[in-house]
Amino acid sequence: MRDVSMGQYYPASSVVHRADPRFKLVILILYLVTVFFCDSFFSFGFMTFFVLVTIFLSRVPILKVLKSLRFVIVILLFTTLLMMIFYSDTSGAAPLAEWGIFHIYLNGIYSAIKLGWRLMLLVLMPTVLTLTSTPTELCDGLESLLSPLKLLHIPVHVFALIMSIALSLIPSLIEETDKIINAQRSRGAAFESRNPFKKIKAMIPVLIPLFVSSFRRADELADAMDSRCYRGAKGRTRMKKLKAKLSDFVALLFWCAITVCILFLNYNWCGWAFITALGI
């Protein structure tokens, strides 16, 4: 069984892996916002180029990235197809083809491709993030980024600890579930039944003991934490502190520059003719 608590982390040594998780999260947010400003095929291509560069730098094989997105890609193609055949053109152009209620317009094809492309861009980068950072790193990064909320008396530390404990308990809970299922199966529980109602019914005697044992575990863990001098965030220090490197700032500046480029491509504030020429 693979280590579920590691998520889909792909261990490798690359600049993307080593980057500060806080910067990765900020860049991701910036990136997602930027994708919504993309409008022309050129700007989509522009963004895609930098996503591919990031994937290349992360040393995660591109097939690995696409594989972890295989279900998303199916949904995405389906959405694009629907968009294409149900598009209704208001500009008065003649449809390229039509069957009954389905009409295909040139603009419809363009919009459908843009929609699919945009969605693809939106899911690609988060995947790269989870492939290149461990859940623990992301958890620490999030805690650090949200720490200003402490001023509003929001217990950020507690949330981070809850996430961390949840992650560390996943493997033992899965093991426990396996054990309970085997115990029930050996006493004749019908997990293999094709009847969905019977299947659901068979899960009840699994869930109840799992619940009970989770509470017991939580109790024991609380005792262990108390015994190790835990008293909340009060007076607590950390062994590891996230350190921003120069390369992290460079990466952030770089992505800011890309955002600015996309904004220019979209709004063309200076009225440059070449931008108009690029845009569909």
Partner: peptide, 14 residues
Amino acid sequence: GIVFQNPDNQMVTT
């Protein structure tokens, strides 16, 4: 300090 019976239930991190 106390070390308890089940090591899995004493781990706080991964």
